[in-house]
Design a protein around this nucleic acid. Structure first.
Lengths: 256, 256
DNA sequence: GTTTATATATTTGTCAAACCTATTATTGTT
DNA sequence: AACAATAATAGGTTTGACAAATATATAAAC
């Protein structure tokens, strides 16, 4: 093998600094809530300028690893990663992937059917009364008159999230948020007519009842048919939308 | 309601600019592969300085929304979000959550057992011959002598990933990568003794066979017992580790 | 004429030294 | 003791410049 010319530094300085600090955070050399040296000091230690340090810090902040406060007691602090923040980041990313067409809607629906029916089983085993109450609230809301489509969709999402939460499993919940949320843009296309809303709320209630009765398999089966019903409605909606989109595109003029 | 004093600008300039550009990307006003105006031009348009613009751009780059190239044809470009990149980001975040103790190892194992046995069923239905071949390769590798612990673990991860890929479901694969990978730090603690390695490889093979035979339920059951076996090994390892950790912590000495 | 070297323009990357602003601790006054 | 002015600290922003990378055009060599 030829001489290994001591790994050329091809990445930028700010990138390197960000990587160094990130590594320090990830392997615990920088503890949660610990304060980094101030920016000037960091610049001096790394032998680079403050703007470059700041670019690195901004990157870390964007990755939810640090946050900064001003003032005497301020500085850049390592923050404790919370599932909520991570869930939001995952959701955003997943939504983007869906939006750009990386996944087909059929794939998404299938993933959702399978994972949510799984959640039903776990929820039946582990649900608390508070979980049931949360689901019940949303069902009641879904039966109110005069709800906008957005409100109905939002309540639908909250119901499914409550169901996932009822599994009592953190990692699963993290994953499921992404699946459920990234499904929203598609779900929002549906026009929920009156009787479809009622059917949806009824499905939700049957699922909730089964979970309340600790009958996981029944709940899972109900969820399957619920989402399958949704899929058929979705298919027709997608066709309508595709037709509309192709018509829209021909007026055209994409930029570059 | 009191007067809504036209939302005070409390967030920093770079934050605002990042939000504006991100919004433009997410709702399609900036298309994939489109080039943003150069940094000087952006600074002029937003009425701020270039370093501030750069901080905003760095944030977007950290979120995998843009990438930058130097030179005449260079600039900052909107990039197509790829599942791979998103999966890596999710994995990193999930790993961090695990590392900081947001999730218990029992939760993680349960999530993994349930989701992977689900994947077995789907894989049995959808697997291609190429998928089987990939799994077979890893099993063969796992039976080789002289493998380091790291190599064995890596092969284990690749086997499970191949299994997930065999489901043919993109969103599911995205989720599962996070579960499997974030499990690594825990898995790596195990010392795979010779006969445990053999048992693992045997389990893998039985699972693969069931999937090859399109027998999803059998594959799922095998996966369950495989991971349950892992769990019992893990429990004893965790106890050993907890004891070691409490001993280690008392010697202290972090940097600053 | 084709290839190779060189110059040049463009754009991101980095630097330096300031100044601005939010936040807190201190100090002094009432 | 309570409160207001003040100073100190550290992040936020600006300005203007130079360095490095890279594509393109141009000139030289074969």
């Amino acid at each position: 093998m030829a001489l290994q010319y001591d790994e050329i530094v091809r990445s930028g300085l700010s990138r390197q600094v960000a990587d160094l600090i990130r590594a320090a955070i990830l392997d615990g050399r920088l503890a949660v809530d610990e304060r980094l040296p101030n920016e000037e000091e960091l610049a001096r230690r790394f032998g680079i300028s403050r703007p470059t340090v700041r670019e690195a810090l901004k990157v870390l902040a964007a990755q939810n690893l640090i946050r900064s406060r001003r003032g005497p007691t301020g500085g850049n602090f390592v923050i404790r990663p919370e599932p909520e923040g991570v869930a939001r980041a995952i959701t955003d990313a997943a939504t983007l992937l869906v939006g750009v067409g990386s996944f087909g809607s059929d794939e998404i629906v299938l993933a959702r059917v399978e994972t949510e029916s799984l959640c039903c089983k776990l929820a039946a085993a582990n649900r608390s009364d508070a979980d049931l109450a949360r689901m019940g609230e949303e069902i009641a809301l879904q039966r109110q008159d005069g709800l906008t489509d957005e409100d109905f969709c939002a309540s639908d999402v909250r119901f499914h999230r409550a169901l996932v939460t009822a599994t009592g499993n953190g990692p699963l919940r993290l994953m499921m948020y992404a699946v459920i949320e990234s499904f929203i843009p598609i779900t929002n296309m549906l026009i929920y007519r009156e009787h479809e809303r009622r059917r949806t709320a009824d499905s939700h209630e049957r699922i909730m009842m089964a979970i309340a009765d600790r009958e996981g398999d029944r709940a899972a089966a109900l969820m399957r048919s619920h989402l399958d019903g949704l899929r058929s409605v979705l298919d027709t909606a997608l066709e309508r939308r595709a037709a509309a989109a192709s018509a829209r595109h021909s007026e055209g003029g994409d930029d570059r």
